[in-house]
Amino acid sequence: MLIFKNAILKPVMEELQEKGGNLLFVKDSGIYLMAEKGAYLDGHRLHIAYADDFDPRLPENEDWYENAGLEVGYDDFGESLGQDFWGTFITQVIHQGCDVFIEVSENQIQAGYIKP
């Protein structure tokens, strides 16, 4: 199970609420969520929400790649998740401080929120 902490996910969800579009679930250099229509600063996304333990920029996550392979497979991907997916937990993230979890299986992606 992947956990996305509220402190880093909330800015992404606020971008979704403001600009619309899809939530992108990505595995390449780390595992993260970002708004399809998110803002850029100096050519880089301003808001990216890495899953706990899967941010390759942090030294404590040095084995993120092996763990990511076990969690979601070794191939890089980008899944576009529409409002029918992220709309089920946006209010809880923005207004209630909830974290989000995502579970990936061979056939589906499921998500929910965790109350603080």
Results as ranks from 00 to 15, higher is better:
residue 66 E to G: 06
residue 103 E to W: 04
residue 81 L to K: 00
residue 59 P to W: 15
residue 113 Y to D: 12
residue 50 Y to C: 08
residue 25 F to I: 00
residue 67 N to R: 13
residue 61 N to Y: 14
residue 97 G to N: 05
residue 116 P to T: 07
residue 67 N to I: 03
residue 8 I to L: 06
residue 86 W to E: 02
residue 86 W to Y: 15
residue 61 N to W: 13
residue 22 N to S: 10
residue 13 M to S: 07
residue 53 D to H: 11
residue 85 F to R: 01
residue 64 W to E: 12
residue 88 T to W: 03
residue 94 I to Q: 02
residue 75 D to F: 14
residue 56 P to N: 09
residue 37 K to P: 01
residue 75 D to C: 08
residue 53 D to W: 08
residue 94 I to Y: 04
residue 85 F to M: 02
residue 46 L to S: 07
residue 97 G to E: 13
residue 73 G to L: 07
residue 65 Y to T: 03
residue 107 N to A: 06
residue 92 Q to E: 15
residue 18 E to H: 05
residue 59 P to H: 15
residue 17 Q to E: 09
residue 114 I to F: 06
residue 11 P to T: 09
residue 85 F to W: 03
residue 69 G to A: 08
residue 40 Y to M: 14
residue 34 M to P: 01
residue 63 D to E: 11
residue 113 Y to Q: 10
residue 87 G to E: 09
residue 9 L to K: 05
residue 28 D to S: 15
residue 108 Q to W: 01
residue 33 L to Q: 02
residue 58 L to C: 11
residue 83 Q to V: 15
residue 4 F to G: 00
residue 24 L to P: 01
residue 6 N to D: 10
residue 23 L to H: 01
residue 24 L to N: 02
residue 71 E to R: 08
residue 83 Q to G: 12
residue 99 D to P: 07
residue 48 I to F: 01
residue 58 L to N: 09
residue 90 I to S: 08
residue 111 A to H: 03
residue 4 F to T: 00
residue 35 A to F: 04
